[in-house]
Computed example of a mutant assay.
Amino acid sequence: MKRKPIQWTAWCILTCISVASVHAIEIETFTQPYRSVDVPAAEMGVLEEVLVEEGSRVSEGQLLAQIDDRVLRASLEIAEAAVRATSSQRAAEAELALCEEQLRSYRELLNEGNATQREVDRAETNYWQATTRMQTVREDAEMRELEQKRIATQLANRRIESPLDGVVVRIEKEAGEFVSPTDPVVMKVVQLDRLRAIFSVPLSRIHTLVKGQQVPVYVSGNQTPVDATIEIISPVADAESSSVRVTLRIDNVKGDLLSGVICRWDLGGSFRD
């Protein structure tokens, strides 16, 4: 049947719209911090001071808060004094040297016939006892050094440091509060120089994606796309939604992109390797 010009035009438009709807798929999600860490205290105790506030930018290893460590500092001084004490070791060394010399002398006298075997045996026993006491002194010194290291480690654990370069977004405990093993989190730090966006991509489009591929996304209604990198493509599909979880990494060194806002990905758009 021959179509009229107007009917033909309408049919072409509908056909183009139908084809475009098949190929253009836009999916949405929300941006989120690249890393989010609940910073805990490794030791329980009273929080002595909090050195940052919400919104503070911090660097990895920076001191964020301090748990009261006065008792441990005193214990460390005692342990260091015990490590420095050498009087018992010098006495044991002198006794060992004397017993060794006596044993040598008795053995020479025995060879010359001027000492008995019993005297030599007694000298050997004294030398063995002195050797044992010397070993005990050395072991005690090692234990004191280990105790010093243990206390120093406990002191270090009472320093709450940032695990990453980021921003403090929440303070859970204030100075004067008790930090317990059942509730150790002191604050939350997030990494924002990179953002993450996790999409559910239809199975029909997953074959076009590869790890490391760059794709354009639109963040928070911005009409200018930004480059994102495919970081993870889940090896498992969701049977209910017929989709695959795909994680994108969005560089945000300038900090002009917000976390927690809408991020759109046009799967019909151009892809870049």
Rank of each mutant, 00 (worst) to 15 (best):
A130G: 02
A81L: 08
E108F: 07
L51V: 02
V185G: 00
V120Q: 13
G255S: 03
E142M: 12
Q223E: 14
A85M: 09
S56P: 02
E174N: 11
V190I: 06
C99F: 05
S36H: 09
G212P: 02
G255V: 02
V261T: 07
E77T: 08
S59D: 09
E108T: 15
Q154G: 10
D256R: 06
Q191A: 03
Q117N: 15
R104M: 06
I67S: 02
R194A: 03
K254I: 02
V50M: 05
A152F: 04
I198E: 08
M143E: 13
Q213N: 06
P225F: 04
Q154Y: 12
L258P: 00
A97C: 04
T125K: 14
Q7P: 01
P163R: 01
A92H: 04
R3C: 09
R84T: 08
E77N: 10
Q129M: 12
K2F: 13
V46M: 10
R170P: 05
A20N: 06
A141S: 14
N111H: 12
S75R: 14
Q102W: 14
T29G: 05
V22S: 11
G166P: 00
K149R: 14
R205F: 14
E95M: 06
Q154M: 14
L164E: 00
E145S: 15
V236T: 12
D121K: 15
E48M: 03
L98Y: 12
Y106T: 12
N114V: 11
I233T: 01
S88P: 01
V19Q: 12
L14S: 13
P163Y: 01
V246A: 01
R150D: 15
V244M: 12
Q32K: 04
E95N: 11
E95K: 09
V168E: 00
L47E: 07
L14R: 10
S59E: 12
T224L: 09
C99P: 02
I232K: 08
S36I: 03
Q213V: 05
V58H: 03
Q223C: 06
E172Q: 10
A79G: 06
P216R: 04
T29R: 05
Q148W: 05
V226F: 15
